[in-house]
Design a protein around this nucleic acid. Structure first.
Lengths: 196, 196
DNA sequence: CGAATGACAAAAATCAAAAAATGTCATTTG
DNA sequence: CAAATGACATTTTTTGATTTTTGTCATTCG
């Protein structure tokens, strides 16, 4: 029983999976539920994804890309203007996006937090991409003498790691408790001293 | 049925609890198990601790104090010598202690990681104590002009937060994966730039 | 023939009954 | 009489039987 004659695409499956996931949450979502939405048999989904884990990873990966990587890339890709400002904007955008999703897109964030623990490979790739963006900003700053010279990628990684508490999902419980804004401001000032 | 005529002390109970906990792990340890070791009835323990949670908290608190706070206090309390060196030593000692316990004293570390999530009050007190130690080192550095002037406590807090990834228990899974040593070195260099 | 199906075995989640643990307190003990 | 007990009600965990879900693949469909 197929929905229509068009062949089933990966993106259609991801759309359905994301929709079901948002409705039922990551724990209560089964492959059969996803298949039902698409009006196909669950066996069909296994022609497109190796396993349920692979499907979850794909959903998370796409979500991370569109809601985190793309917006940040727009900032990192800008040319001209102050690198320091752009660096700060990039970090604030990352942090706000994570904290906003943790509060509002709860089911997706729960899945992402889970995947972070399980799918180490996929997450390191994602993190590496983000660090590359940071390095891009930092390189520009070095070129314009706005920032101290140094190995942009090491420094980018250090900046990313030093701000983990504000964007890593395993700290989500602490967000919204203390003075996140003030804490970030202090860390930023400290890092800035090492950067300029 | 008492072990002997001496009245039961809190420390005796904590010793027994810690022993049972190390043997069975935090999940499988019951108040009755602890009472059995002490050869008293479990009701007796409730004369000394309000609840099982309070007992767990007390065990964790004592463990944190002797294995983390005291050794670090020795470093923070030293007088003379380079503050930068002491600061680095303090951080390395904290990080090594945490990572060592995560690997070797698995049951106690599991309980501590758990308590970190549940007993927010107790952990903030502990963290505040550590930040005070850091501030002490930083103040000395400021007095001797080794470090830039500034609000020592804000800076201490920023240093602590910026190094979270290396000592916060919710990152324990990541320890022993990548290049923790190199990553810390890079973060340290970055922070140092902001400090001196 | 490529895409989809659905029957099936194996693995995992669920649920309700049973067992164990927590926490209270009237009573006992030294 | 201060300290400890252990019987008891309540809550939580365990257990094992049952159901659901995952993943495979021989067969069907267009």
């Amino acid at each position: 029983m197929m929905k229509n004659d068009l062949p089933l695409s990966k993106d259609e499956i991801l759309d359905a999976a994301e929709q079901v996931l948002r409705r039922y949450g990551p724990d209560k979502t089964s492959v059969v539920d996803v298949a039902k939405v698409l009006q196909v048999s669950h066996g069909t989904l296994y022609r497109h994804f190796e396993s349920k884990a692979a499907l979850r990873e794909a959903v998370t990966s796409r979500w991370l890309h569109t809601s985190i990587v793309v917006p940040l890339d727009a900032i990192a890709g800008e040319i001209g203007g102050s690198s320091v400002d752009r660096l700060r904007l990039w970090l604030e955008t990352l942090i706000q996006a994570k904290q906003k999703f943790a509060a509002e897109d709860i089911e997706m964030f729960a899945m992402y937090a889970n995947v972070t623990v399980i799918e180490v490979e996929m997450i390191s790739t994602h993190v590496y991409r983000l660090i590359k963006q940071l390095a891009q900003i930092i390189e520009q700053g070095m070129a314009s003498k706005e920032l101290k010279q140094g190995d942009s990628e090491s420094i980018a990684r250090a900046v990313f790691l030093a701000t983990s508490r504000f964007h890593h999902p395993s700290h989500a419980a602490e967000w919204g408790m203390g003075n996140m804004t003030e804490d970030f401001e202090n860390v930023w000032q400290l890092l800035l001293g090492g950067l300029i």
